[in-house]
Design a binder for these strands. Structure first.
Ligand SMILES: [Mn+2]
Ligand SMILES: [Mn+2]
Ligand SMILES: [Zn+2]
Ligand SMILES: [Zn+2]
Lengths: 139, 139
DNA sequence: ATTGCTATTGATAAAAGTTGCAATAAGGAG
DNA sequence: CTCCTTATTGCAACTTTTATCAATAGCAAT
């Protein structure tokens, strides 16, 4: 977690504060990859942190661009440290995951922007489909 | 709801049953457009239906392709009757929505399929961005 | 019309997620 | 180091969603 001092400065510049709660959630995500709020709570509650604080902190850090949110497809969310942009491709059948480089969507997004006038920030999309194994198994 | 007899036959052919609960949820969505489980419950609970039944029925109908699910971006889901395929584009700032024709993504999806081997079913995606109004207002 | 199988529901409890508010503590100023 | 402002937290009530299980009722067959 070499980035902590920089993150602290960023937050303070925006009028926010660095706290032990925020630090331990960042640490948990540093170790854990993609985690749900419940998984994060399991890993930090021994410090006395409340569920409410976990949910608020995740929303706060995501709102400040420090975390990325991913839709898990069932209406539940997963959080991860923001790093290189990427999307997800999940197998509906077995849950296997792949990362998708944003470049693959670039021209489609440009097209959508010119058609709609929106400025699209396609941060962290989730696509669903059938992986190769599940395709052959089902046919 | 002229499609009810056909839907009933489809379900029975799969070993399932048509029930008054399923009918009134379909009716609510026929009138309502995109609705959350809570909104649907408000519209059907006078019939004595439970929340549990609302959630189960929505999941069941979506699993059978009769409803489509849309991620609302906040970890909550919205349901609608499956009709023509489309995606959503939502303004992060004001919530304004636009529909996206699937054709705009077709070539990107073909590219992802050939790179990953997955067979992608991009049923009902949600993109986020800033609408034109919110762009000009913020700068 | 009756029967039997079992998919579906309601009731209930548990889990996950949200909200309002008073107490706490981060961190800038003196 | 001490004081002060106010962002942040814990607490507790509340809403939303999921899971279990016995009772109900769709519907196919007779
Ligand atoms: Mn990710
Ligand atoms: Mn839709
Ligand atoms: Zn698979
Ligand atoms: Zn807008």
């Amino acid at each position: 977690m070499s980035c902590i001092p920089q993150l602290t400065r960023t937050l303070r510049a925006r009028g926010y504060r660095m706290t032990p709660q925020r630090l331990s959630i960042l640490q948990a995500l540093h170790d854990g990859g993609h985690l749900s709020p419940t998984q994060i709570y399991e890993r930090v509650h021994q410090t006395g942190m409340t569920e409410a604080t976990v949910y608020r902190t995740l929303e706060f850090l995501a709102g400040n661009g420090i975390l990325s949110v991913a839709d898990r497809g069932n209406g539940h969310l997963a959080y991860e440290l923001s790093s290189e942009a990427h999307h997800h491709l999940i197998c509906r059948n077995c849950g296997a995951q792949m990362a998708i480089e944003p470049a693959m969507l670039a021209s489609a997004i440009r097209l959508m922007e010119s058609k709609t006038g929106y400025q699209i920030s396609a941060g962290h999309l989730t696509f669903f489909g059938l992986c190769q194994d599940c395709q052959s198994r089902s046919q």
